[in-house]
Design a protein around this nucleic acid. Structure first.
Lengths: 169, 169
DNA sequence: CATTTTAAGTCAGCCTTGTTGACATTCCAA
DNA sequence: TTGGAATGTCAACAAGGCTGACTTAAAATG
């Protein structure tokens, strides 16, 4: 007679905290934490009259140098027009360089300029300071769990992109 | 540019994953996961021509029945005008009831109506389904870590509010 | 009691960032 | 050579943030 009929018992786990209250707690934690997560970059962006959308573009161009517009669209999950508006100001302001693709001249390969890299650094440094502090406070096992849950929370397509980016590093 | 050779060793902890790459990975995980986190409610809200702001109001009125407008403002971190716009439509549509305070008649005590509770349930059920799945997939220890890191990531004032809400439950 | 402060609501206007739809251009590939 | 894909642009619109100014009512305070 096995014990597998215990609810939530799987893969050596014992109890899962799946009451509605526990779940709501997690939902609220995500809400409040995400605010903290974006607070520092948001403050910096104001000095440059940029918004979160600019930060996201800078971040992912930096993480994927030479990426195409289409690829960026898939990562960011916004419309072409929305991204284009942001991208245009970044190019005009000399933070992003857009080069016609070599093999496929329809494509544009996106890179950060020195100026772009500088701002990206400023933004992600601020964000990293908070992440580092949170990681230290929570401890290494907590960090593992943190990432596991976040990964499991993503839409499959986003998880694919996330994993791929992690690997090509 | 590497860090000190024994990064983050403190308080009995052994290794902390604090390389810039590890931190950036966490940043990206937050970004992609938050998209998943809001995807299901967002889809439902479209059927009612409401937005995320309405969802947040419903959620926190439900979590704090009888709360005042001022209190809600502190939780949501938006301006009075911004919240009022959302609140007004919810009251007009009969999802939220606003009662003059008994002890202090300047205040309004906010409650969900049956209709409001129904929508709140529909939204948070969808969100909970995903959270539950993510929790199961990641396991109970991961969930602990997930919450620890998120808590550490919050602004102190938000952590205070979060903790308080958790206790009065 | 008079004054000040607080809570809530409203109006007007602005910005960012998302959306659709229509359309032009370029260029690869069948 | 023609169809389709990738990119870009224009216009219009909506949600949801913001600021500033102002009103009303009630509480708190001197």
């Amino acid at each position: 007679m096995s014990e597998s009929d215990l609810p939530g018992s799987q893969g050596g786990e014992t109890l899962l905290f799946l009451t509605d209250d526990q779940l709501r707690q997690g939902i609220e934690a995500m809400f409040f934490a995400y605010r903290g997560f974006t607070a520092d970059p948001d403050r910096i962006l104001q000095n440059y009259s940029y918004g979160r959308a600019h930060h996201r573009a800078l971040h992912f161009i930096n993480a994927n140098p030479g990426t195409t517009v289409n690829n960026l669209l898939a990562i960011l999950g916004v419309t072409k027009q929305s991204l284009n508006r942001v991208l245009r100001t970044l190019i005009e302001d000399g933070l992003v360089q857009s080069n016609v693709g070599r093999s496929d001249k329809r494509e544009r390969n996106l890179h950060l300029t020195e100026k772009g890299e500088a701002l990206e650094q400023e933004l992600s440094n601020a964000q990293r300071v908070r992440m580092r502090a949170a990681y230290r406070q929570a401890g290494p096992e907590a960090v593992q769990g943190f990432k596991r849950v976040l990964e499991a929370m993503m839409d499959p397509e986003m998880r694919r992109i996330y994993t791929k980016m992690r690997e090509t590093r």
